[in-house]
Amino acid sequence: MSALLRILRTLRRTLLQAVPTILGIIILNFFLLQLAPGDAADVMAGEAGSATVETMQALRERFGLDNPVLVQLANYLGNLAQFSLGFSPRYGMPVTELIGQRLPGTLTLMAMALAIAILIGLTLGSLMAAFSGRLPDRLLSILALLFYSVPGFWIGLMLIVLFSVTLGWLPSGGAGTIGSSYTGFAAIVDKARYMVLPATSLALFYVAIYARLTRAAMLEVKNQDFVRTAYAKGLSPVVVTVKHVLRNALIPITTMAGMHVGGMLGGAVVVETVYSWPGLGRLAFEAVMGRDYTVLLGILLLSSILVILANTVVDLAQAWLDPRIGEQK
């Protein structure tokens, strides 16, 4: 069976499976919104400064907040079908639009962090597996465990102390020099300078995860029978590692990479608040501070969909890597 067919079949299966999950998440989201103290009317009244019982009542009627819960759920679903997540009085714009503004920032940060984490993680993990049991492995293992134990926000602050405050090499926050008119390459450099610290803070934890995972996966594969077959063919250790071990080890590693997208989104929330990075995380933080639950739950829903998308990509990558997936048994 061709790889393409395999991938298409996996895509169909994955998407079909995603439907009930998304539905479940939406319903959960709705009920969390119901549980939140105060409703939209309260919030709007609070924003407006003063409100009488009557105006509150009118607001509730206008937004359908006095309907039975199931009707409200139906309305909520209906709105979602039109890609509407509600309106944020605080920001004075629809939540979808608000999130749309902040999403690219977070995605760039995450992509950068993921790239750093995979690149360094794979390298460290392969090194650890190659030297397993010997000094380099032990030192790197401890280093990885240390990365694994450091809170992202703290290392973020410490990096600011070192690189911004003490050394003055890199900016301590923001996403670009305000009022600058860099173009072309200079603009990219400027952007990168602002991104190095947040991306590193976010990546560190995942560097540790991927390194440990790569080590385990490589060692696991190394012990398998087909690796012995490869050696019996007369292949050199380097060729065996690259052509036989790594390819097979990538399968579990890809799965894990996908599984951590959700975690990384969470990490971004904290890191963005540290670096005042204009992304979803900062928005979430502001929403929490302003008790703006519509925005908060909109972010939760959207980030879940992001996770589902990431999982789909991972599944496709797996179908490409592993011929046993997507097979009709």
Binding site: Q224, F226, G234, L235
Partner: peptide
Amino acid sequence: RKVRGREIAMIFQEPMTSLNPV
């Protein structure tokens, strides 16, 4: 390595796992 696979070859017990699955 020049002997393995060329002068002396070997087959193993577990055909299910002795080949690279990918």
